[in-house]
């Protein structure tokens, strides 16, 4: 076995697990230096396995594995500590992040910046407790929008928000635009695309999400961009949240 086939104590998170054979699981993990990796955790579903409680999403781990095929073999996982799991509504947002990473990242591409951003985002999600309902909702929205924007630019689908794609001039705060995923911001004159105000585009470019109208428009715009990148298959987490909203009414 060559030296590069063995990886030791790599910081990472489980994104999702699938049962595999009688007692094992396949874990899709997101690691700092190796990106998304599929690991088989042998025996992780046995009642006495120490891996059993560890191979869960939102748990900071140090992972060691070997192998060169698409499916690597996990040989050790250790709880890294220091991070509390998100709860309640924030936990749902955590699943959404994981689904985005699963769907949008290719296996084996390292994204150190995105990994650090993911850890910071999980920390922020876990820190939402103790806020009022409205505060919490907008707090979570801001966290998600920042993460979506970073994710898209990290995987090469970053958009320029504050430049008029027709004229190359800076976007004007008072003007209405439509945003087309392929081209960018265009002054609105009946063409298709996601309608958005100039102010929202400027806020998005500068990472400012304090204005309520910005949050609403940014959500629709990021959704358009993500759907464009994902293709036809919808996101499960989004569908689940929609069904839950129906039950609440």
């Amino acid at each position: 076995m060559s030296a590069d086939a063995r990886v030791n104590n790599e910081p990472g998170f489980v994104l999702h697990t699938y049962p595999f054979k009688e007692t094992s699981v396949v874990a899709e993990v997101f690691t700092r230096d190796h990106g998304r990796v599929a690991l088989i955790a042998r025996g992780a579903r046995r009642p006495t396995s120490t891996l059993r409680g560890l191979m869960q999403p939102f748990t900071p781990l140090l992972l060691s594995w070997f192998g060169k095929s698409e499916l690597r073999t996990l040989h050790a996982a250790e709880w890294q500590g220091g991070l509390l799991a998100p709860q309640g509504r924030a936990l749902m947002c955590g699943f959404y992040l994981n689904e985005l990473l699963l769907r949008l990242l290719a296996r084996g591409d390292a994204h150190e910046t995105l990994y650090d951003r993911y850890v910071a985002t999980l920390e922020q999600l876990a820190g939402e407790a103790g806020r009022s309902d409205y505060e919490r909702a907008t707090y979570l929205e801001r966290i998600l929008r920042r993460f979506e924007k970073n994710l898209l630019s990290e995987i090469g689908y970053g958009a320029t928000f504050d430049v008029d794609a027709d004229s190359g001039a800076p976007v004007q705060a008072q003007v209405r635009y439509v945003f087309q995923p392929e081209r960018g911001a265009l002054q609105a004159s009946g063409q298709p695309g996601c309608p958005v105000s100039g102010q929202t585009l400027i806020d998005l470019a500068t990472d400012r999400f304090e204005r309520p109208a910005t949050l609403v428009e940014a959500k629709a715009l990021m959704r358009t961009l993500i759907n464009h990148t994902l293709g036809a298959k919808p996101l499960y987490t989004r569908q689940l949240l929609r069904e839950l909203t129906e039950l609440t009414q």
Binding site: Y236, L240, L247
Partner: peptide, 16 residues
């Protein structure tokens, strides 16, 4: 259980 990434939603676990 609710498991968004496996497509297990409120309908599958009979929440109604």
């Amino acid at each position: 259980r609710l498991s968004p990434l496996d497509g297990m939603g409120p309908r599958e676990i009979h929440l109604d």
